Simulated scan of single mutants.
Amino acid sequence: MRSLRILRRTAVVTAAPLLLAVAGLMHPSHLTAATAGHWAGLHIVLLPVFPFLVLGLLVPLWGRPRRDIEGALTVLSWTGCIGYAAYYSGLDAVAGISAGTVVDHGVHGAAGRLFATGDELGRTGVYGLAGASLATCAVLWRRHGVRVLPGAAVLSVACWSFVDSHIFWPKGVFTMLGFAVAFALLTVAASWPADRAREPESLTNP
């Protein structure tokens, strides 16, 4: 039963990054008149997918006790996840859907400004995701100790790479695969009983 629960949770947290990795293989390398329609269409399809990347941080935290420093860190994680979902969706809409649409209609001069705005939104979103990742790993460290280190290490590299890789092949695809591996490792680590040495002391007296 426990192994089945871990398998289900792992499937949930890796679905979005694996789907984005596959989409990255189909993502045009450059926005041109020939690729504009595909460029805009792909980002329309992916618009609801990018926000689900945060499940890799929220699922391992599910059911964590919200008290003391852990509660504050959990709030920080949720805040960073919300910031990522909002701002990275902005990148998808501006540099993906809007830029692809204007180029597809022959308005090439606007694409550069749209890319510049989209890049700023995207970086802000990734910084939010990185902050959420740090807060999540801190909570899991307090609960599970060194078991979280492999996932945390892979996650930090993926966040660093995500700043300028999007899902473009090859860097962006490997970045998404990195997220999938990191989320799976953190989910498995969080499935172990909490390290009792790190648990808050319980009250023994009424």
Rank of each mutant, 00 (worst) to 15 (best):
161 S>K: 13
112 G>T: 12
112 G>I: 09
204 T>A: 10
36 A>Y: 05
144 H>Q: 14
87 Y>N: 04
77 S>M: 02
171 K>P: 04
34 A>I: 08
145 G>I: 09
100 G>Y: 04
63 G>T: 08
120 E>F: 11
81 C>F: 02
28 P>F: 13
13 V>W: 08
115 F>S: 08
70 E>L: 02
152 A>V: 12
19 L>W: 06
166 H>R: 09
120 E>K: 10
183 F>C: 00
25 L>T: 14
12 V>L: 12
100 G>M: 00
50 F>E: 09
22 V>R: 05
201 E>K: 04
176 M>G: 03
196 R>P: 03
182 A>P: 08
90 G>V: 02
131 G>H: 08
52 F>S: 10
187 T>W: 03
98 S>M: 14
4 L>M: 11
15 A>R: 11
136 T>A: 14
51 P>Q: 12
86 A>D: 05
190 A>C: 06
122 G>E: 07
78 W>A: 00
132 A>N: 05
101 T>Q: 07
132 A>K: 00
22 V>P: 00
162 F>Y: 15
142 R>I: 06
122 G>W: 10
134 L>G: 11
198 R>I: 09
47 L>M: 13
205 N>A: 11
183 F>H: 09
41 G>T: 07
199 E>R: 07
35 T>F: 04
95 A>V: 01
10 T>P: 08
192 W>L: 12
107 V>G: 04
181 V>H: 04
45 V>H: 03
76 L>P: 00
98 S>K: 07
58 L>K: 05
176 M>S: 12
169 W>F: 15
9 R>N: 15
171 K>G: 00
3 S>Q: 07
4 L>C: 08
164 D>A: 07
23 A>Y: 04
61 L>T: 04
164 D>E: 01
144 H>Y: 13
74 T>N: 09
201 E>Q: 09
102 V>N: 09
142 R>T: 01
82 I>M: 06
96 G>P: 05
29 S>Y: 00
178 G>F: 15
206 P>A: 06
25 L>Y: 03
177 L>Y: 01
